[in-house]
C-alpha cells in the first residue's frame, strides 16, 4: 500500500478547525482544555429554536505552553454558527481572561467569528462587553492579549470590537476584520455602496493585507499554522502596557488615519496615498513582496 502524501508540516489556518489550530500553535502535547466537550456545557438557548448544539458551544479554552512558557488559549470554531458569541461561548472566554489577570499569564485568542449569535443576542452582547472589560483588566495586570485572525468566518461584529482591545493582532491575507460584514453594509447602504458578492472588493476593504497596511493589524503572516505560531512567539517577547498614554496614542493614531484617508473611495486609493507604486497589484502579491511593498504602512506600535 502506498502511503498518502498528506503534508503534515503545512496546515492551512483558514481551513483548520479550532482544535487543529490550537494543536499546531502551542508546544506539542502541552494543551489542557478547561470545560471540555465531555462536560457538555452547551447553549441553553439553541434548543428553543430547534437548532443543533455543539458540546463546546463553539469555543475551546485552556492552557498550554509556547516555547516552554505558559499561555492561556481560546479558539473559536468558525464553522459552528459562524463562530458567533452566545452566553456560554462568551462566558468561557470571559473566564479565561479573568484567569489571565489573576495568574498574570498571556492570552492567545484565535478569533473566527461573525459576531453575536442572533438566537441569544442579549446574552451575546453582554458577553462582548464583559470580554472587552476582561481584556483590559488582564492587560492592566501585565498580561499580553494577542489576537490571531485568519479563519473562515473572519472577525466581525463584537469579535472585531474585542480584537480592537487586544495588545497585538496577527492576521493572514484570508483574515477579515470589520465591525459590519459585507452583507450588512449592502443591506443598509445599497449595492452601489458595497456589493457583498464582489469578493475582491470585500477582501481589499476588510482583508488582512488592507488591515495590515492601515495599522489595523500588527503582523502579517502566511496562511500557515507554523507562521501564526512564530508570530505569536515574537509578539509575546515584548510586554506592552495599557495605560492612558497608550490610549491617547491610539486616539491620535485614529484621528490621523481618518484625516489622511477619510476621503478615499476605495482601498486602492489608500494604498496609493501610502506611496505604494504598484497599488493595484497588492491583492496578488505573495507575502515577501507584499511585506516589502508595505514598508511605509501605517502602524500602531505605540498605540496598543
Amino acid at each position: 500500500m502506498i502511503a498518502a502524501t498528506a503534508n503534515t508540516d503545512s496546515l492551512s489556518w483558514y481551513e483548520a478547525s479550532a482544535r487543529q489550530r490550537i494543536d499546531a500553535l502551542v508546544d506539542p502535547g502541552s494543551f489542557a482544555e478547561f470545560i471540555g466537550p465531555e462536560q457538555r456545557e452547551m447553549s441553553p438557548h439553541l434548543s428553543i429554536f430547534d437548532l443543533p448544539e455543539q458540546f463546546d458551544d463553539g469555543i475551546v479554552v485552556g492552557r498550554g505552553r509556547l516555547e516552554g512558557s505558559p499561555v492561556l488559549v481560546a479558539a473559536q470554531e468558525g464553522r459552528f454558527m459562524g463562530g458567533a458569541f452566545g452566553e456560554v461561548h462568551g462566558a468561557k472566554l470571559t473566564g479565561l481572561l479573568r484567569a489571565a489577570r489573576a495568574l498574570q499569564q498571556d492570552v492567545l485568542i484565535l478569533f473566527d467569528t461573525g459576531g453575536v449569535r442572533l438566537q441569544e443576542a442579549n446574552a451575546g452582547e453582554l458577553a462582548i462587553a464583559e470580554i472587552m472589560r476582561a481584556v483590559i483588566e488582564a492587560r492592566r495586570a501585565g498580561a499580553n492579549v494577542i489576537g490571531l485572525i485568519g479563519g473562515r468566518a473572519g472577525c466581525y461584529g463584537g469579535g472585531s470590537l474585542i480584537a480592537g482591545t487586544c495588545s497585538r493582532l496577527i492576521v493572514s491575507e484570508q483574515g477579515r476584520i470589520s465591525v459590519s460584514g459585507p452583507e450588512v453594509i449592502e443591506t443598509n447602504k445599497g449595492i452601489e455602496e458595497f456589493d457583498s458578492r464582489d469578493r475582491a472588493l470585500v477582501w481589499r476593504t476588510m482583508g488582512g493585507k488592507h488591515r495590515y497596511l492601515i495599522g489595523g493589524a500588527d503582523t502579517f503572516v502566511d496562511d500557515e499554522a507554523l507562521a501564526f505560531r512564530q508570530a505569536a512567539m515574537d509578539a509575546l517577547k515584548v510586554t506592552r502596557g495599557c495605560g492612558v498614554a497608550v490610549l491617547e496614542a491610539e486616539q491620535t493614531r485614529l484621528e490621523r488615519r481618518l484625516q489622511r484617508f477619510g476621503a478615499a473611495r476605495d482601498a486602492v486609493e489608500i494604498w496609493q496615498a501610502l506611496g505604494i507604486d504598484t497599488s493595484t497589484d497588492i491583492p496578488a502579491l505573495p507575502t515577501d513582496a507584499f511585506l516589502a511593498a508595505a514598508n511605509n504602512r501605517e502602524n500602531a506600535d505605540d498605540a496598543r
Binding site: S10, S12, D198, R199
Partner: peptide, 28 residues
Amino acid sequence: RLLAARSIKDLMLASGGLYRPPSRFRNW
C-alpha cells in the same frame, strides 16, 4: 491536504499569477 491546490488562490499562485479568477471566486 492531498489536494495540489486547496483554494482558488493556490491555483492562481500555481499559474504564476497568469490565472485571473473572476471576483466571485476570490478570497483575497
